[in-house]
Design a protein around this nucleic acid. Sequence first.
DNA 1: TAGGCCATCTGGTCCT
DNA 2: AGGACCAGATGGCCTA
Length: 179
Amino acid sequence: MMPAEAASSGGVSEPPGAPRERRRRRGRARARTEALLHTLKRSRRVKANDRERNRMHHLNAALDELRSVLPTFPDDTKLTKIETLRFAYNYIWALSETLRLAEQCLPPPPAFRGPPAPPSPGSDAGSWLSSGSPAAPSLCASASGPSSPATSEDCGYVPSDALRAFRGLPPAAPGAPCR
DNA sequence: TAGGCCATCTGGTCCT
DNA sequence: AGGACCAGATGGCCTA
């Protein structure tokens, strides 16, 4: 590594000042191992950063997938992460509530009436949202506790056929009789 | 310019 | 030991 140095320091018997030279060598060796340790730590950190970045990308991809199945206005700005999660929560709540009502075979209130076709990812889903509210879906998802999702007026819609499809049932015929 | 959102880095903790 | 997960810090970008 340091040829010039090695050549100059070679002696047969201990010349005066040898202990000092030994100390210097030890110091250099320690510095080398510290540097090695530093680069090792550094490379581990870099790898960990890489994995973390990847992990977050996967998380974001999953979030994008979730966004894509949520009904949103086409010209709406992209839902933020927190909005996406809250909206998904309320969306699921609304779907299950609709299901519950459907199982009771009660005619849903007018505010719950949805369009005839189920939403498809990326489709114009604005009409699936609440009665002409100009607000973005995010507003539906605001500050509601776990036991009290957004009210049906906030977010309600009834994708009745979608729900039937969910359960593996054919779309309800218009005016189908109640079981 | 302040505030919100986001990506990235980082160190700690837990798990395999 | 190494990877996954998490939360805090930081800096950049955008909008009101």
